[in-house]
Simulated scan of single mutants.
Amino acid sequence: MQGWSETDIPDLSGKRVLITGGASGIGYEAARALALHGAHVLIADRNEQGGRDAVARIQALKPGASVEFRALDLSSLESVRQFATSLVAEGGKLDILINNAGIQPISERRESADGFELTFAIGHLGHFVLTAGLWPLLLAASEPRIVTVSSMVHGRGTFDWDDLQITKGYAAQRPYNQTKLANLLFARELQRRVDLSGGKVKSIAVHPGVAQTSIGSNRKQLGKFRLGDHLISVILRFVMPYLGQPASAGALPTMYAASAPDAQGGGFYGPQGGGEMKGPPGSAKIKPAGQDMAVARKLWDVTEELTGVTFL
């Protein structure tokens, strides 16, 4: 995979892809690249105008590109269930599911419609329910893949099983770290369960390194900023561009995991240069927190209890 780039994406004609958070940033770049290589791409996002604009931008790049928008609010488990039920009712298959959507939280703790901490609800619980709901479509594909976007900060994540929703000692980075650890452990535990069942699904985790996306500006929609929130926004806006790479480069690990023939189920991929901050995709380091499969199994069980959804 040395030097792998967007031009190495194979012909994806006949493949159907769904990517959450595809209206902007890394999600958009992955949707764009996969659509330009022949896939039929469903962009799922709560930002309806942004999603429709993303479709128009891709089709302007390649007239006739097969891409469509579907509204999805991952912060509401009922909305996720209805979305999945509707898509399954349409029939067909889903070759690639990319669990990409997420938020960068602020200092004010926010809750989802179901009463869960908002970052965890969107990034982990919503994707768990979505994956379970779309399972029949994935099994209908010949070589299905699920790509889940984690982060380098997964190693800083922890779970307080007595306060998983972080009602005490809340700080903006804490739920983000927890959610990104959950993303990696979910992907790894999903592959373990697929292997035990003799299934064909590849579950792959990725991280984008340090990439310039709209996640910083989108934080303004989450509530009233405190001093620390303004400082983080300054860092995201002015410092990260010097350390990181464009969103199109940050999306390369996602593109690789979704399309490369040699991407391995259970693998973890990220940039290869500068401490995994940028560069072409390759195998990424799983930090100790992400290697604890006992915790991964417990997280799966707790997630089933929280969501009321079981599969595998």
Rank of each mutant, 00 (worst) to 15 (best):
M240D: 06
G102E: 11
Y170T: 07
I96C: 09
G270F: 03
Y256K: 02
V129Q: 09
F311Q: 03
S79Y: 09
A84H: 01
R193L: 15
R219L: 00
R156P: 00
L77Y: 14
Q291M: 11
F69S: 02
A101L: 14
A249N: 15
P144T: 06
I43M: 09
T7E: 13
Q165L: 03
S217T: 13
Q165N: 14
H40C: 11
I166A: 03
R32I: 02
P253Q: 01
R192A: 12
A71L: 14
G270L: 05
V17I: 14
V295K: 15
F120R: 03
V41S: 06
P208G: 13
A187G: 11
T20C: 00
P136Q: 06
S283I: 13
D162T: 15
L299P: 10
K298C: 12
E48Q: 15
A172E: 11
W161K: 11
P261K: 09
R145Y: 09
V302S: 02
G267V: 04
G282C: 09
G275T: 05
F116S: 07
K62S: 13
W161I: 01
E6N: 10
A182M: 01
E305T: 13
R188A: 14
F186V: 03
A101N: 11
P281D: 13
E29S: 02
G198K: 10
A249V: 06
Q291C: 11
W135Y: 10
K224N: 15
I215R: 10
D292N: 15
A263G: 04
D11T: 13
M240N: 12
L306M: 15
L87H: 01
T148F: 08
P144L: 05
G290D: 04
D45V: 01
A44L: 08
F311L: 02
R192T: 13
D114H: 08
L231W: 09
A171C: 00
G198I: 10
L97S: 12
Q272D: 03
S66L: 15
K15G: 07
F225E: 08
